Simulated scan of single mutants.
Amino acid sequence: MEQGDARIFMVEAPVVAAADPFDPEGRTADLSWRRDIAPEPPVVHDPLVAGPGFGQWARRFGRVAGRHAAHLIPVMLLVALPMHFFVGRVDDTIVAAPALADLVGGFGLLLLPAMWLAYLAVSALPLVLSLAGAVGVALPAAAQGRRPRARRVWSLVSMRLRALWLWFAGFGLLTGGLPLLLTEEQVGAAGGLVAIGFAVGSTVALTFGGVLGCVVLIERGRGPRRAAHLLSHARPGGLLVAAAALTVVPRVADYALGGFAATAAGVVLVQLWAIAALVTYGQARRAVEPVTSRSLFAELDAPEE
């Protein structure tokens, strides 16, 4: 061999590790072996269903609120009617009961349970209408790229409004009825603590109720257990803030500026709460299973059996 013809071949650790030292034929390692690396799943940018993290949630919430605010104005006008004119206070019915008794005799007291039931039914209307409007407008628009007409929105949510109304009427009993039954003489010096306790309870109920409402509207035959399961896989910080604002701000506006200011604040905040509930629901569903706006819309549009 002439000088300069010799070559040095380096055998590195992977080749040595793959070789068989007990091979009787003295063969070297099979260099054709390679490790298969699984490709990373593609990142899906959905206009409604957010990925993990508060940043993703905030971007979807801002996008939905900004794009559909004008188209939700008819819903907010419908919400303003029961919120300002028809939603009576439970303590007003208690005051009115003796007057009814004087007018129509002892039968007036029999009207008190009916008045309470009417209060609970009507007080749930703003939540029901806002959430149904947000789901019926934003979800088809995200899935199909165009906003549905009013008749189409009604056809999507009308069959499931009764169940949604019943659930929110029950929440109204806890968040609206019980605090008004406690007078200043009953709570005494602990009135501030009681008010704070009921505000916290109302915030929690609205947070859970927002996800439950989306479950009732979109998924058939599922209820509180499904909503609790989804909330356990979500970080509903944005929905908590929206629920707290809906609980506190209208009462502060009523105290400081009057009933019309409280109604205006309540109408806007209940619609923002509904949008926050829908975005939180979509994010929680994506954390549990692979979903998109189209798959959620297919569930919403599925015919009733």
Rank of each mutant, 00 (worst) to 15 (best):
L78P: 00
H71G: 03
F85C: 11
G105L: 12
V75T: 14
A121L: 13
A69H: 10
H68W: 06
T175V: 15
P82W: 02
L127C: 06
A150H: 07
L156Y: 00
L112N: 07
W167P: 02
R89N: 09
S130T: 06
V194G: 00
R162D: 14
L109I: 14
G201M: 15
V204F: 10
A70D: 12
A97P: 02
M76Y: 04
G133N: 01
D102H: 12
L110P: 09
V211W: 04
G172P: 05
A189Q: 10
V128S: 05
P74F: 05
V75K: 01
R152A: 15
A134V: 08
V122N: 02
G176H: 11
L100A: 12
M83Q: 14
L81D: 02
V122D: 05
L166Y: 11
L110Q: 13
L110T: 14
F86T: 13
L139R: 01
G108F: 02
G106M: 10
L206A: 13
F85R: 07
M83Y: 12
L181V: 10
A150Q: 08
T183E: 11
L161D: 06
A134F: 03
Q186G: 07
Q144S: 14
R89W: 08
F171E: 05
A80D: 05
F86P: 01
M159D: 10
V211Q: 07
G88W: 06
F168R: 04
A163E: 10
L161F: 12
R89L: 12
V79A: 09
I73Y: 01
H84E: 03
A124T: 03
S202C: 04
F168K: 03
S130A: 15
A118N: 02
H68P: 01
A132N: 06
V104G: 01
E184W: 14
L112C: 11
L112M: 15
L181F: 10
V157P: 01
R89E: 03
G106Q: 10
L181C: 12
G210S: 10
R147T: 12
A143P: 07
F168A: 03
G210E: 00
L129P: 02
W167G: 10
A132Q: 03
F86N: 06
V87E: 02
L127Q: 14
W165I: 04
W165Y: 06
S155F: 08
S130R: 01
L178H: 09
G133Y: 01
L127E: 13
P82G: 11
L164I: 10
G136T: 09
F86D: 06
D102T: 11
P179R: 08
M83L: 15
A142G: 03
M76A: 14
I73P: 00
M115F: 09
D92C: 06
G108W: 00
R146D: 02
V79G: 03
S202P: 00
V211R: 04
H84N: 07
A195D: 08
M159K: 02
G88S: 13
V79M: 07
G106F: 06
T207P: 03
G197S: 07
A114I: 13
G201C: 12
V79H: 06
G108C: 07
V157K: 01
L103W: 09
E184M: 15
R151C: 10
G106E: 14
F171T: 02
